[in-house]
C-alpha cells in the first residue's frame, strides 16, 4: 500500500490560554499534536485514536471539543483554553481545588480533559444536577475512579 504524501504546510495563528502562537503546520496535523508537540503544552493528553476517551478535551472559542478530532489548521484564528490556563498563577481554581479535596483523580491522566468538560458544563449550567453532571462528562473516560468522586467534586462547585 502506498503512503499518502502529506499535503503541504500552512501557517496558523492560534490563541491558547491568552497567548498568541504562530506556527507552520502540516495540513494533517491534529490539534492535540499541535498543542503537545509544537507548543509543548503537554497537559492535554491522548488516550485513544478514535475520539472516544476525552483526555484531549479543550475549549475552542468556548465550545468543548476533543482536540484529536480537529486539525490544527481548523484552529487558525481560534481561541483555545486548556488545563494549563485554569489556575490563576499558582492558585488552583475552585474546580481544581474541589477535585483535590474529593480525591477525584488518581493517576491524573484523564484529569485535564475531565476538568475542561466540567468547566464547559459549569459555564453553561452553574448548578447542575447529578444527571446533568454525568451527561456533561460522558465523553470522558476515567479508568481509576469509577467517576464517583469526580461527580461529587463537580457537584460541590455547583452547589
Amino acid at each position: 500500500m502506498a503512503a499518502t504524501a502529506p499535503v503541504g504546510g500552512k501557517t496558523v495563528t492560534v490563541r491558547v490560554n491568552g497567548t498568541t502562537y504562530e506556527r507552520e503546520v502540516e495540513a494533517r496535523r491534529l490539534l492535540i499534536h499541535f498543542l503537545r508537540d509544537d507548543l509543548d503544552l503537554t497537559g492535554s493528553h491522548v488516550g485513544c485514536d478514535t475520539g472516544n476517551c476525552g483526555a484531549c478535551s479543550v475549549l475552542y472559542d468556548g465550545t468543548l471539543v476533543k482536540s484529536c478530532m480537529l486539525l490544527a489548521v481548523q484552529a487558525d484564528g481560534a481561541s483555545i483554553e486548556t488545563v494549563e490556563g485554569l489556575a490563576e498563577g499558582d492558585e488552583l481554581n475552585d474546580l481544581q481545588q474541589a477535585f483535590g479535596a474529593h480525591h477525584a483523580l488518581q493517576c491524573g491522566y484523564c484529569t485535564p480533559g475531565m476538568l475542561m468538560s466540567a468547566t464547559a458544563l459549569l459555564r453553561e449550567k452553574p448548578h447542575p444536577t447529578e444527571d446533568e453532571i454525568r451527561k456533561g462528562i460522558q465523553g470522558n473516560i476515567c479508568r481509576c475512579t469509577g467517576y464517583v468522586n469526580i461527580v461529587e467534586a463537580i457537584k460541590s462547585v455547583g452547589a
Binding site: R36, L41, V83
Partner: peptide, 16 residues
C-alpha cells in the same frame, strides 16, 4: 494532586 490538576505532571510522552 497539584501538578496533575494543572497539567504539569510528567508522563513519558511529554518528554522530548
Amino acid at each position: 494532586d497539584k501538578r496533575l490538576l494543572q497539567g504539569e505532571g510528567v508522563f513519558f510522552d511529554d518528554i522530548k
